[in-house]
Design a protein around this nucleic acid. Structure first.
Lengths: 250, 250
DNA sequence: GACCAGAGTTGATCTGAATCAATGCCCGAA
DNA sequence: TTCGGGCATTGATTCAGATCAACTCTGGTC
């Protein structure tokens, strides 16, 4: 169980939980929850109630905070950072089923065991609710339920796109699609795509090997479609060609 | 636009729509809705209101009733039969993202365009709601929303499993997983798996070619794990070996 | 700076599934 | 009964991406 401390920035002190190897104090991120994920659908009284119930947690890079197949006790809302969601086979083969960023909810599973694992890519802050409490909150605030349904619908659409990618696209089409998706996600119209994940993560997300991802990125660079910067960032140089490639027109 | 007629089995006549080449009269399936999909979560008043809003439609085999990318006007509940959901690339490559049977809801998309197409495998009966009306119904009956959230969560888990299959499993593992999934779905513990879809559908679902599906089924037969009956049914002869193969243990 | 470990790139070779091709099996129509 | 067309099976060959292997780059530590 993580350490507990209190927040210096709230009128009323709130619990904060720290997870990971380094246990340095962290601010309560109730304000983060308010600003980023919940306030758009529930009113202030709802937020107060949510904050009451949540325990803010800090997760360090590389740390796995949901274990695939483990008992599904909690429900999470990410307040900052990025996590990877994955499933694995007994022999170690892995499939990353998605990346979740600020504002996303995790742990919707109807079953009482998590259907996937989750690991922090960078330093992640998240709100942790017990599932029992979450259920009561949903009873009281139907608008919260609508918010979750919308998110689930969007994830379902993303999952269908990913199935098309994994089942029917070539390696080049997969990498091109991935870069464009990431750009959409980053909301950066200048064409700079931040890639906080390793080549291994990209490979496990696209159903390829590290070597194929690397070769394909090199090929895209030689073709003049992208420029590979330092520190895990890629610049898209020829958007239309990349889009044509991603959609299978080429 | 489909023909409209009235139902002989309701005290108050109800509209029925017929789609497809043969336009024979069909019973109103409000009772089907009541029995199979909605009554477990909403009360009788809710059902009356739902039935009021729905138009029952008959869809013939092979007919596509949701066009990928088309305007998302309606929301569907399947009252009998099986449909395939799919996405396609411009050059014709297809990925079937799932099969939906009795009781399933379709058309959840948040966007105003369908993200996938849907086609009837056999004769399908479904209730069609306008999305605007559906929204009002959800406002009135929060329990309906919970039902949809549960269904979406389950589909999300299925989608994640499918991503693992498409990204990381071999052809043999894919076919074995598919047969076991279908058996779960059919709820037939005797090990007989009905396959209402063609080899082409199976291939498009598993990210393989027709030939590979056929070869793999023949291999499973030679290995004694299955027996291939007539008329699209398969008998599972060695469940434990098939399960080991499906989960990648072999 | 020197060292080291992990991440990434590039080349050579192999292989599982795709592709190309031929044949068999139904089943409905004439 | 024969014919024809869609679906399925099986065989031969090809190829995209995996695997195996060598090497380079980077960033952190001493």
């Amino acid at each position: 169980m993580p350490d507990q401390t209190t927040c210096q920035f709230e009128a009323r002190p709130r619990r904060i939980a720290l997870a990971g190897a380094h246990r340095s104090p962290e601010y309560c991120l109730t304000c983060g929850v308010r600003a980023r994920s919940v306030c758009s659908v529930v009113d202030d009284a709802d937020i107060a109630r949510l904050a009451e119930t949540a325990v803010e947690t800090l997760v360090l890079p590389g740390r796995c905070f949901i274990e695939e197949g483990g008992p599904a006790t909690d429900f999470f809302n990410i307040t900052s950072g990025t996590v990877k969601l994955f499933k694995a086979l007994p022999d170690g083969r892995r499939q990353i089923t998605g990346f979740a960023g600020t504002g996303h909810f995790l742990g919707l599973a109807v079953s009482d065991h998590y259907a996937f694992g989750a690991e922090a890519l960078d330093t992640v802050r998240l709100c942790r609710f017990s599932r029992a409490r979450m259920r009561h909150l949903l009873d009281d605030f139907p608008r919260m339920e609508r918010r979750l349904l919308e998110e689930a619908s969007n994830e379902l659409v993303a999952a269908q796109n990913q199935m098309l990618l994994l089942g029917r696209k070539t390696a080049r089409e997969r990498v091109a699609s991935f870069l464009l998706d990431r750009m959409q996600d980053a909301l950066d119209p200048t064409g700079v795509v931040p890639l906080p994940m390793t080549r291994a993560d990209i490979a496990d997300y696209l159903g390829l090997t590290i070597e194929t991802v690397s070769r394909t990125l090199s090929w895209l660079r030689r073709e003049g479609m992208i420029a590979i910067g330092k520190g895990h960032a890629i610049h898209i140089a020829a958007m239309p060609r990349l889009e044509a490639l991603a959609s299978g027109d080429a």
